[in-house]
Amino acid sequence: MAQIIVVTSGKGGVGKTTSSAAIATGLALKGKKTVVIDFDIGLRNLDLIMGCERRVVYDFVNVINGEANLNQALIKDKRCDKLFILPASQTRDKDALTKEGVGGVLDELSKDFDYIVCDSPAGIEQGAMMALYFADIAIVTTNPEVSSVRDSDRILGMLQSRSRRAEQNLEPIQEFLLLTRYSPARVKTGEMLSVEDVSEILAIKLVGVIPESQAVLKASNSGIPVINDEESDAGLAYADTVQRLLGEEVPFRFLTEEKKGFLKRIFGS
């Protein structure tokens, strides 16, 4: 039985797809057979971030509709043979994802994989609700910014009332906070909510803090998930996050400002 992880947020542009790609890759690098599914029907982008956009033949909706089987639609990652991608469809049909259809595909994948990572679209429409419905674990991706934190709280409400686990009175979804685009320098000057502030407001367990990093844009430019960039702070922070998801205790890094050299301090940067 696979563990189903949803990467969700409510608000758009906070880093769900970047995080889904990084976390799925990280799990696969740890030897877990992992599939990452794009739930953003009509606005497919995970394929670009994973660098497999030219290898898409069949998609998630084709599989649900029986137009292709899973083996035809799954794309094997170039870099990691434990990792597979199931791309979203570019159809404009909003109701393409049904509970039965998605459930059937997840059941089938569940036999074969250790982890299923569901990359949720923004908002609280059908795609987002389907991405979270079957989840065992939720990674609530949040920026240290008021609208993102508020939307994350709304999504926590959905996880607790609209998911399969809630409807069937099972053990609740494990909820984790992933704070992205964090800037310790701005926290220090009182311009940005701190890790402690956001953790206190949302009151869920912190699984990772990803610093604002130029490496993220570079990674998406080249279609290589940022976790593969082992020289970048963001890549290392995602690697730590994956270890924590697997139950290891890892201290948090990049929470304080990088020390500047003597000359920089005198003359400014």
């Binding site: 910014e145 934190v149 926290v187 009182g190 701190s194 407001i201």
Partner: peptide
């Protein structure tokens, strides 16, 4: 402003 943000949230 971070303090204001936290209180509002």
């Amino acid at each position: 402003t971070a303090v204001t943000a936290k209180e509002r949230l």
